[in-house]
Simulated scan of single mutants.
Amino acid sequence: MIRLARFGARKQPYYRVVVIEKDRARNGRSVEVVGTYNPRTNPASINLNRERIDYWTSKGAQMSEIVAKLFAKTPVAA
């Protein structure tokens, strides 16, 4: 599963986009970190490694709804 893991201080969320087994805890040990998302900046900063996300989805990993929306928002690097 590709989903968000929350980091940062209280009331200052910062997220990592991680590849993790579906039954693990939200902030449990992940397989790989494939990006970051910071909603506190204006506009929100999204940094995703598209190559690794494509690799993991080809191996059967599913994206959460939020990660899928973030993935659609980010432009393809030329």
Rank of each mutant, 00 (worst) to 15 (best):
F71C: 01
Q62L: 12
R26H: 13
R3Q: 10
R3Y: 08
T41I: 07
K73V: 04
S58D: 12
F71R: 00
T57Q: 08
S58C: 09
K73N: 11
Y55E: 02
Y14L: 08
N42F: 03
T41E: 15
N47S: 15
G8A: 05
P43F: 09
G8V: 04
R50E: 07
K73A: 07
V34W: 02
L70V: 10
D54R: 13
E51D: 13
V31K: 12
R26T: 10
E65R: 13
A77F: 05
I66L: 14
P39G: 03
S58V: 09
P13K: 02
V31G: 00
F71A: 00
P43Y: 09
R3M: 08
V17E: 00
T74G: 03
S45C: 07
R6G: 05
M1N: 09
R3L: 08
R3D: 07
K11N: 15
V67F: 04
E51V: 13
Q12A: 12
V18R: 01
S64P: 05
L48Y: 04
Q12G: 03
L70P: 01
Y37Q: 02
A72W: 03
R24D: 09
R40H: 01
A5G: 12
R24H: 11
V17P: 00
W56I: 04
S58F: 06
F7I: 06
R10T: 14
V19I: 14
A44E: 15
R26D: 12
A72N: 11
R52T: 02
L70E: 04
S64N: 12
M1C: 01
E51C: 00
F7N: 13
F71K: 01
L70S: 05
T36N: 12
S64E: 10
R24Y: 04
Q12T: 12
V76S: 13
A9K: 15
L4G: 05
A77H: 08
M1W: 01
A5T: 08
A77L: 12
N42I: 04
A68H: 10
K69A: 12
A68N: 14
A78D: 14
E65H: 08
G28I: 03
E21V: 05
R26M: 11
P39E: 05
A61W: 09
M63Y: 06
Y15M: 02
S30N: 12
V19D: 00
G8Y: 10
P13T: 04
Y37N: 01
N49T: 02
Y14I: 01
P75N: 10
K11Q: 13
G60F: 09
R24T: 06
K11T: 11
I46M: 07
A44F: 11
S64T: 14
N38Y: 11
E51P: 00
R29G: 12
V76G: 00
N38E: 09
A61D: 04
A68K: 15
S45H: 10
V31L: 15
A78Y: 07
T74N: 03
V34C: 07
D54T: 08
L48I: 06
I20S: 00
Q12W: 11
R10K: 15
M1Y: 05
R50C: 03
W56P: 00
V18K: 00
E21A: 09
R26E: 15
Y55L: 05
